[in-house]
Structure formats: C-alpha cells, structure tokens
Design a protein around this nucleic acid. Structure first.
Lengths: 156, 156
DNA sequence: CTTAATATGTAATATTATAACATTTCATTT
DNA sequence: AAATGAAATGTTATAATATTACATATTAAG
C-alpha cells in the first residue's frame, strides 16, 4: 500500500495486520520484546489512522484491563516510539502508528484537523535541505519534527 | 540583526527593546491592545532567547504580582501568539519571542537541547516544497510546524 | 533452578492547559 | 461627565497530559 492511499478507503484489516506483522519482525531483529501489553497498545493505535491520545488509549485498554493506569500506556508508548513503531504528534499530544517502520524514513506528518486522520509522507528532500541549512550555521541537528495541519481530500 | 547572529553574543538589551517596539507598532496597526500584562509577559519571554514554559513565566511574573494565576499567563500567550509576537514550540511546550513579527515569514525553529536557545531561520523554500507536495495529494494545508532539535555552535 | 535484567503493578504527584463566571477597565457615544 | 457595551482581568476550580518512586512479577541466560 502506498501512503497516499490512506486517505482513501482501503482494506484496513490488512493494513492493521501488516503493521503488527512488521512490528513483530522489527522487534525480533532488534532483540526487544513486543510483550502482550505493548502489542495490544500498538494494535489499538493502529486500529485507525486517527491520531489518538494517551488517555483515550487508556480508556480503550481498560475495556480489557479495568485497573490499568496511565503509566501502563506511557510505558508502552515509550517502547513503541523508541522502536520506531509509533510516532508522537507534538502539536496534538497524540500518537499514530508508523506504517513504514521497517525502512528508515524521513517524513512529514499530514494531519487533517477535521477527521484527525494523520499519515506520513516522504519528505527526504526537505530533511536534506534543512540539515544543509543548519550545518551552514554550525547547528548540529539531531531530530526534526514536521507537522502539516490542514484538511484531507475527504474533508475539504 | 540577522537571525543567525542570535547564537552569538549580541547586544541583548537592544534586541529586547526592538522586539517590544515592533510589538507596539504591530498592535497599533492591528488595532489590538498590548496591555501592561501582555507587554510585560512578552518582555519576560524576550528577556532571553531560551524557550520558556508557561509556569516558568508565571513564576517570573509572580515576582511583581504575587497572586497571578496560570490563566493570566495563558491568556497573554494566546494574545501574543495570535498577534504573531510569540511562537509556541510544540515539542517543548514552551514559548519564544518572534523577532521578525513585522514581516510575514515561514520559518523553522532551531532548538539547542543543551542551552535551550531557540531561534527561527527562514525556510520559505521548504514551506513551498511541502505545500506543493500536499496539494498533489489534494491535502489543503493550513499550518505548518517545523522544529529542528540539536546543538548550537556554542554547545556542540 | 538461580539470578539478574526487564517488565509490570500501584500509588502518588508533577506539569500543562482550560472552563466558567464575576468584576473591572477602557473606548465610545451621549 | 455619565451611560453603555466590549474587552480584559480576577478568581476558583478542574481538565488533560505525563512522570517519579518503589514494590512485585516475569523472563532469558547461565
């Protein structure tokens, strides 16, 4: 699936399964443990392409584990983000699943402010350009956040 | 002053005064009121180039108004951001003064994770590129956040 | 099967931000 | 100058987001 198809109807079940499968593979390769909790939280995040907040996630998770606490979610998010399986959207304090975790990627996140769907678009040239600019002034870049808000084609 | 001089020593008093002067001008032009509180909070923000949090700001403001409340700060920040005089750094939940509020600008914010100094660099071509990309997939962009973390020349 | 590291449980609390409503200040019209 | 309406501020409370600290449990490796 190409990323720019996400805003259109697609077989989401397949999409979700693929994300989980890739996650399994990545965690094996990295030698880290995608435990039941972590995998389930990833599944909840990837159950749609909408950015989801930690406490929304907690509410969902509590359906199956009524006494779950915020820290359960945040710990799982920490793990998933570190593993590159989830991204935080800073401008929303919310999270999305990464659909291209298997390959290194430099992306912009497009966020529809209407439907909250968010997806990544490759922006390697933009990264390149910004890194070059910053090096010119001797700024040593480590991480880059690019978030574009607007309206997706379905909501415009 | 050019923006890329900010990471170097400069006459900060002049820098601060200029920011306040520009703020006065802009608010007159826009027909909005830069009240005592708002101007003072802008002054506190611009007193350095370090990103500052709302509650840090509150602590500073309380030196002169012991019973100030969070909402005082957030209301002022709201006003200042709307007027284009202050930017929020989403990845830090912190704020910086804008030094080019008088002209329309499309910038990336460079954030030194060591000293917390943050400043804007023109990134119009990057905006252009991202807008073009997004239009290709019929995404209607409204606002763009670009934040580059790293180490400034002084801290590297 | 022990042990050491990793993960999870549990409670408390820190940090960031907003809502709701009362009062005051300010600019404008009279 | 007084009346008025809009904008700003005061005040209280609370919502939303995130982390710390320490106890217990699980797991992989020797």
């Amino acid at each position: 699936m190409h990323n720019d198809e996400l805003q259109h109807p697609h077989n989401h079940q397949a999409c979700l399964e693929q994300a989980l499968h890739i996650a399994d593979t990545i965690c094996v390769k990295k030698g880290v443990r995608l435990t039941t909790i972590r995998r389930r939280i990833l599944e909840l995040i990837c159950s749609s392409h909408k950015a989801i907040g930690a406490y929304e996630l907690l509410d969902l998770f509590r359906v199956e584990d009524a006494k779950a606490k915020p820290v359960t979610i945040y710990r799982a998010l920490d793990f998933l983000i570190t593993a590159g399986l989830v991204h935080k959207i800073e401008s929303l304090n919310a999270f999305i699943g990464c659909l291209q975790a298997e390959k290194q990627h430099q992306s912009v996140i497009l966020i529809c402010d209407q439907c909250k769907n968010a997806y990544e678009l490759n922006a390697a040239p933009v990264y390149e350009s910004l890194f070059t600019m910053s090096k010119k002034i001797q700024f040593k870049p480590t991480s880059l956040t690019i978030e574009l808000h607007g309206l997706c084609v379905a909501c415009a």
